[in-house]
Design a protein around this nucleic acid. Structure first.
Lengths: 190, 190
DNA sequence: TGGGTTAAGGAACGTATCGTAACTTAAGGG
DNA sequence: CCCTTAAGTTACGATACGTTCCTTAACCCA
């Protein structure tokens, strides 16, 4: 049928687009190897050769959506933190609650570790510049915060999103005002 | 074949035991209507008549495992909080990470809301007595903490368990010392 | 106690997806 | 230009799904 036969990057990106489209259209649970293969104009064996499980296939297609949230310098720690969580919200909404939960449930040790450290590392990396700016402004004592405190903002927001399926503005405000600011202003140094 | 035919509570508890055994043996993903029916000595239609989805069937069997963690009075807020998280650990280990994640992913609005408010309510109820004892000891200013701060201990522990699959002692210590105590001692009142 | 209603028990169905196994034949490299 | 690799295609058995139908035991109530 197909006079031509794709290889390498061309094929991979066609598959990637098919995976994303299927997940967007039918959800993670409704995404199947057969559906992806059909949409990508290829066959199941081509997919199985690359990813032994659906979870790894979806993760490979979605991994670029796990971007690093970057908070703008708003002039204050409180506003920076709120801006950071707004950034995160856009990000998790792209990934989606169902996909996030099923990836966490389906992925096995090798890939699971990658995803976990990706979430953790990003959580710390994203918050670090916000803290450094607060130091520069004199809003926080100039001592290192423990890693757990650095990952706290994204951890709390993620937990909220996983449970509630959304992250409304007032919840962001409450997290920042009631939890993050007190903990960071008075937290133990590392 | 069966000269006798069970009904009501007798049948329900046989099914319940079968669900728990199947989940324990094959995991949530490996649990099927057919497996449960076979183990309970009944048929699939009997199960489908009661629960339209596997998630609701498992939730019904597991709901009693979502107990309220009770922290003993250890004499200090710090130790009370650590004891509370140790209690929670026993609880979530019974439910299991995979079951927790897949229930969160599979349950639909009606049952999902029940589970969510169950987690949230328990999280607040479990922490409240710990805070009251801290007030009595003079360890905390005698002002109401916002609900988000009350649910924070179990929220953080749950998030850790969901991501890491375990909740080691040193993580409990770090959560309490680096996050919970600073936040609670200096948190805004409600 | 008898008659009627409910639902348990059992079997079978078509459908969908899984994961794998062949086979052919383009595509790309030496 | 040959030769290795792997894309594309078809087909397979196995498993679980969700449903339908039928029988008859268990229970309720008159």
């Amino acid at each position: 049928m197909a006079a031509t036969r794709r290889r390498g990057a061309e094929l991979e990106s066609a598959i990637r687009e098919a995976v994303l489209a299927e997940v967007a259209e039918h959800g993670y649970a409704g995404t199947t190897y057969e559906g992806v293969a059909a949409r990508a104009g290829t066959g199941k064996p081509v997919l199985y050769r690359r990813w032994p499980t659906k979870a790894e296939m979806v993760l490979a297609a979605k991994v670029d959506d796990f971007v690093l949230p970057r908070a703008p310098d708003t002039g204050s720690l409180e506003k920076d933190l709120k801006a950071l969580l707004h950034e995160l919200r856009s990000m998790v909404e792209v990934v989606g609650r169902e996909t996030m939960l099923r990836l966490l449930a389906d992925l096995e040790p090798p890939s699971m570790g990658i995803m976990r450290s990706l979430l953790l590392t990003r959580g710390i990396e994203a918050t670090a510049p916000v803290i450094e700016r607060a130091w520069a402004r004199g809003e926080l004592p100039d001592i290192d915060l423990p890693p757990r405190l650095l990952s706290l903002p994204l951890d709390l927001a993620r937990h909220e999103f996983i449970l509630a399926g959304e992250l409304p503005d007032d919840v962001i405000d409450a997290i920042v005002e009631e939890v993050l600011l007190p903990a960071m202003r008075h937290g133990r140094s590392a």
